[in-house]
Design a protein around this nucleic acid. Sequence first.
DNA 1: TTGACATATTACTATATAGTGATATGTTCC
DNA 2: GGAACATATCACTATATAGTAATATGTCAA
Lengths: 112, 112
Amino acid sequence: MSRRTRVRRLEGPILSSVAGVFSVLSEPTRLQILQLLGEGPLSVSEIVSTLEMKQANVSKQLGILSQAGLVGRERDGSNVRYSITEPMIFELCDLVCGKLRKDAEARIASLK
Amino acid sequence: MSRRTRVRRLEGPILSSVAGVFSVLSEPTRLQILQLLGEGPLSVSEIVSTLEMKQANVSKQLGILSQAGLVGRERDGSNVRYSITEPMIFELCDLVCGKLRKDAEARIASLK
DNA sequence: TTGACATATTACTATATAGTGATATGTTCC
DNA sequence: GGAACATATCACTATATAGTAATATGTCAA
């Protein structure tokens, strides 16, 4: 996605794919799951009890995350263990957190 | 957002704010506008004619981008000029493009 | 094979929002 | 002040999707 004087722009299908990744990350529920998995692989029921979410929803969100290539799944008996496969998402979040912090500081500064 | 053994997790309100930024970026239309503005400040009508979008929608999306602190607006007579105020978004997009490229390469490799 | 446990999926409801046509509002010039 | 041009906003429609209860499916042990 160009930000310089290059005339090459990303086209519709690419931008749709990019938007798709951001869309997956645009839900607090999914961010919570990713954050938890960032600490290590877990089964569905471990996520359910830790985050106090409904099992059906956790499975659904994990499906979305898995389909997007952000987490991987590995069967372990009757348990399925999920883990992060795309650590880049934490860089994304760090960048966004940096912006939010900057915004908050500017807002505080404007009160003085 | 933790990805190490640190026990500090981002809480609900922060994750909602993070999700909010990703949500703003989750629409191809808005990504198109940001990409165009990355090449330099433009008025609403310039964006409308360049991207062949409806004026009402462009104004609406610019409002969302402005509200999110990603673009700034400056009146210039009867024109309002918009420009990027948060260049970090291009880093976000670069990271996501890198993942998509990697995904595509893996998909191609799996065909051999 | 059955029952227990784990997980995925379905069908539905409620909510959010993209895009649009119409219109309100802002700026400039004569 | 009115007309022309630029932009923002409103009310609406159509579509997408988060979350849920119910149920289907998978695994394991007796």
